[in-house]
Amino acid sequence: MSQTAVLSHPVTEADEQAAPALKVRGYWASVGYRLRYDPVTMFFGLVVLLIILAAIFAPLLAPFDPYKESVIGRLKPFGWKNHLLGTDELGRDLLSRLLYGGRVSLLMGVVPVCVATVVGGSLGIVGGFAGKRVNTAIMRTMDVFYAFPSVLLAVAISGAMGGGIGNGMIALSMVFTPAMCRVAETATAQVKNLDFVEAARATGAGTLTILRYHVLGNVLGPVFIYASTLVSVGILLASGLSFLGLGVRPPTADWGLMLSTLRQSIYVNPLICALPGAAIFITSISFNLVSDGIRAAMDVRM
């Protein structure tokens, strides 16, 4: 009868059982697996990790007080009197200032991105999933911000609000949110029209359940990748703000600010002046390469 029909075609079961099945990995596990064997990404991931650790443990690692000035010890070369990376134009230990500066720069790079991811991401998902009217309302508002070049917008906002770390972070968050919203909206709109969302509705699931179980997982990937590229943009923009005197105020240690103040001494000791720039460069390049690696690993069909 019909039951034998079911039994007589156990597709691939026989095959699968005959030979030991290959390990079946979940999606994220297989992404991790591929990442593990990507030497470039692994290397730069390590660099990122070291930079973060160095910033966190700056008080322990810094050999000198980053704010201690010295009139006689200005702009000294590498290794001068235990100052491993020399001193700056006020005689402060450069290594210590770089370590402390990393804290501010990373903070400025990471916090606004997190805020933008949560705010912009949610708005984007709502905008992408909701009907035309809500979508238009959200996306047109975002477009107003999006129309300005990000640097200009950041400068304008923090110029209006005044300097300081807090205001700088608010400015950067406002710069990143529309872009994040865009990415989330596009990803959601793509997923929304696929049949599996409709299939979930057909099983009787409500909108929130569908968003949570079916949409979020598919949107998070692109959003996360984009966020990781934004981190390096954030560091650069924050440095730029400080450089223009709109972000962090002296004497706080910050890479952008250090670059700005050391600029005048470029003819005295060019090597030392280049150090904060190098720190910014290495950090942002590392973040970029890591997010590229993650992007590649996440593309299952590659």
Binding site: A5, S8, H9, V11, T12, A14, D15, E16, A19, L22
Partner: peptide, 15 residues
């Protein structure tokens, strides 16, 4: 009547 399907499925191309 059932259709004369070829039973089983094609081999795993990994092995």
């Amino acid at each position: 009547q059932d259709i004369n399907a070829i039973p089983g499925s094609p081999p795993d191309l990994r092995r």
